[in-house]
């Protein structure tokens, strides 16, 4: 990692708030969206800073490809900006925005599958930011494990993969997942259970000490 890239990472990290999305002030979020609807780019910048981490991780969880996830995240933010006038405050902005991210990521996956290319090419060109306490052996173990988890996720049905990413990676509540996926709470509950069992089955196929 070059110094410039590392500096950019540090800058980005310093902007990302560590609170969960549910901790965001609803009134403040509403005010930001209203400002965006009036064409205020500064308000949009605040939303980008707030949601870029979560948006990227949803895209990355679904696509398992760094550059694709980056493109989808950027594209999703631009779509949100261009269509912010259609947001009617019937849900949280995050829910509306996650739906955009999810749809764009799945559309890209669909395009990839139609081209018969490998949709789940594991991308490790982007170096993981190591913790000082980790040894190289442990980091190598993490990388191997991550690749296997990516591969297992890739084998799941699309709706199972999506709900696992939203819940496990994004830690959305059942209510938020229901809003993003447009289904009932009961369906979220049963589908998540099926998805977890499916992931367990896929991971157990690997000869690996989990």
């Amino acid at each position: 990692m070059s110094v410039a890239t590392f500096t950019a990472y540090i800058d980005t990290y310093s902007e990302v708030e560590s609170d969960s999305i549910e901790d965001f002030d609803l009134e403040e979020e509403r005010e930001l969206v209203l400002q965006c609807q009036n064409g205020d780019a500064d308000a949009m910048e605040v939303l980008v800073i707030r949601y870029q981490q979560w948006a990227y991780n949803i895209a990355y969880g679904l696509l398992s490809h760094h550059e694709d996830a980056q493109d989808v995240t950027q594209d999703a933010f631009l779509s949100a900006w261009q269509n912010i006038g259609q947001f009617k405050f019937k849900s949280r902005f995050s829910t509306w925005f996650y739906r955009i991210v999810k749809n764009k990521a799945l559309n890209l996956l669909d395009q990839r599958q139609r081209r018969k290319t490998d949709p789940m090419e594991i991308d490790d060109t982007q170096p993981w930011v190591p913790l000082d306490t980790e040894t190289p052996e442990r980091l190598a173990l993490y990388e191997e494990r991550k690749q296997l988890v990516h591969a297992a996720l890739a084998k799941l049905k699309e709706n199972h993969r999506t709900i696992l990413v939203l819940r496990e990676l994004q830690e959305l509540s059942y209510n938020e997942i229901a809003a993003v996926l447009g289904c009932t709470l009961g369906r979220v509950k049963s589908r998540l259970h099926e998805a977890r069992k499916a992931l367990k089955a896929e991971l157990e196929k690997f000869d690996y000490e989990w």
Binding site: A8, Y9, D11, T12, Y13, E15, V16, A41, M44, E45, V48, I49, Q52, Q53, A55, Y56, N57, Y60, G61, H66, Q70, T73, Q74, F77, L78, Q126, W128, V129, Y142, R145, K146, V149, H150, L153, L164, V165, E168, L169, L199, L203, W210
Partner: peptide, 17 residues
């Protein structure tokens, strides 16, 4: 294991803004 897939967001803010 899935949570460990999370990774730092790349610098996309500048490009988006």
């Amino acid at each position: 294991h899935i949570a460990a897939l999370a990774r730092p967001v790349p610098p996309i803010k500048a490009a988006v803004m």
